[in-house]
Design a protein around this nucleic acid. Structure first.
Lengths: 335, 335
DNA sequence: TTGAAAGCGCTAACAC
DNA sequence: GTGTTAGCGCTTTCAA
């Protein structure tokens, strides 16, 4: 049925050890033997089993990627670069969308562990850090993406969220907005962005108030709903800073449905700079994360850990870039 | 180091066979033994190795998914539902973005084969059908997604592209457009949509001409470029039917940059109904594919093949739905 | 330069 | 009800 190393060995008239050597390019042998074996492998359409070789202590050449939602453009764009970089190293990636749900996080982590992935890329939140500790103490390489690892002590790759939040906010403040709402997500990165928001607010001499902060899970629908709330506030804000593009887009849609003009009646800043930011009209002012570089870096790091063992945990921060487009402007005098 | 079935057996004071039985819920045994083994597995943090069990003839519980580009919202939305359905069945999915590149298709197919995935979901084009024949003749389950399998004889899941193309086009024709350009992709699905386009064109009594057809690879950038070409045509078309949303959005952007009003100066219809269709302004008239149902169906089918063997190849067509939004309207008299 | 054989972690008869 | 054992397909000493 399935062709194995034995079939190849037999047909080539050598031992399986020899075949194994040509597969892995190890040991020495007569060039003619190597050629012959190669030829037979071709003829027989032989594909060495990764399973079997993994069982003997080799790697599975597989990475586990846990993201909140692969259909969120931010993560799908990230996944794409991760996938490409991984494939360059001969590794494939198993994707898992957790919805930031603790049950799923646990389940997928276990599943991937049973599949002996060589390493984990964690972009989901894992409020329950114990789950991650298990894999850390098992010595399986792991790196955090778009968030730092807190007390866990593994290397993390993210954008400088504090600065990103600061820049988004001061862009708005410098345009003259004084009543800005921030919509956060229940993630660590949002927390840092919120601190940046606060810092900017106070730097500009305004007093930061709790009531400026809203929280929701990333989706367009939820963004729309946030707009509703904002719309009903007594003292209506003139600007909103959404912690990601998806939410920002939802706010825009909500605003349009209520007949507001953007940015005249409401300025909006997003975060991520996904494809959505450029396709919406007016195009979205947002804080760009260097998705491609981050994706590439994260596999470089994990592959390095896999091959050369865990290094000291680093915290790698990428620089966010404010991209001013058309959803931000000066507030109306009577805003 | 790694805890194995032996460690569990030893600590529980039973044989590995017994442990294996509790893992797989097979055979009978005293309830107390089962309990004890379970407890020890917990204590030891034991994760049965999928590798090892796969080696003994069991499945790997892994699906291979080949798409052109996971960062295209159509495919990322599809991937999400596939992933969810697969996880419900205890399977995970390895994603591969081929860019419709033959080299990559070949490489990823081999890699996945070496990893002994239980089945393939093929949404990439595979112009070189020989590649797929290999896996078919190896008896590995496979199903085509968003395209039918041609002479390959495997079951396929797609939308009724012909009808979709027909409806998109007659929507435009019935609005009074007479000079419509279609932008296709180099994929089989586009070919069917083109036939639908042609059929509609002729049904309405107009003569279809080759020069109405453009072809490009799906991306916003390419959509923009197509607009350039359209813009320069002597007899400027009043409408375009793009074979997917990404391209359609590109056309919209191109048109806006040239100061055209949509739909007054140019009507546009897309295909897929991804998130992009709702976030753009004006919102995109497009032909919806039931992404969720298709994704669910495709894993149902593949799982069934894996478990009960290949059935007769079916061709499963889902119904496309034209969603008229704001990028289509009557043509200008002097269009 | 090549091969024999032990072992990776598990499953599935088949004994006891 | 429970254990023994022969593989699964491969890698890797160690001998020859």
């Amino acid at each position: 049925m399935k062709v194995t190393i034995y079939d190849v060995a037999e047909k080539a008239g050598v031992s399986i050890a020899t075949v194994s050597k040509v597969i892995n390019n190890t040991g020495n042998m007569r060039e003619s033997t190597r050629q012959k074996v190669m030829r037979v492998m071709e003829e027989l359409n032989y594909y060495p089993s990764v399973m079997a070789s993994a069982l003997t202590g080799k790697k599975t050449q597989t990475l586990g990627l846990l993201v909140p939602d692969i259909s969120n453009p931010f993560f799908s764009e990230m996944a794409r670069t991760i996938e490409d970089s991984a494939h360059e190293q001969g590794m494939s990636v198993i994707m898992c969308s957790t919805d930031e749900d603790e049950e799923k996080e646990k389940k997928y982590l276990e599943l991937l562990r049973r599949k002996q992935v060589d390493g984990f890329i964690i972009a989901s939140s894992f409020r329950e850090k114990k789950l991650l500790e298990g894999i850390k103490s098992a010595g399986i390489p792991m790196v955090m993406l778009t968030q730092n690892s807190g007390t866990l002590g593994v290397t993390s790759i993210s954008v400088d969220d504090f600065t990103g939040g600061y820049e988004a906010t001061s862009h708005l403040l410098s345009l003259g907005h004084e009543n800005i709402v921030i919509i956060t997500e229940p993630r660590l990165s949002s927390k840092m962005r919120l601190y940046g928001f606060r810092e900017a607010y106070e730097t500009y001499g305004f007093s930061y108030k709790e009531e400026l902060v809203m929280e929701t899970v990333a989706s367009m629908e939820n963004g729309k709903q946030c707009f509703q709330e904002i719309f009903q506030k007594k003292k209506r804000p003139t600007a909103v800073f959404a912690c990601n593009d998806l939410i920002a887009i939802g706010v825009i849609q909500g605003a349009r449905e209520h007949g507001l003009n953007i940015p005249e009646d409401l300025s909006i800043v997003g975060f991520d700079n996904t494809i959505l930011a450029t396709t919406t009209v007016p195009s979205l002012t947002t804080v760009a994360q260097p998705i491609k570089e981050m994706g590439k870096k994260v596999v470089d790091v994990i592959v390095d850990h896999i091959q050369h063992g865990e290094k000291n945990a680093e915290r790698i921060l990428f620089k966010p870039t404010l991209i001013a487009r058309d959803t931000t402007g000066k507030p109306h005098k009577n805003g």
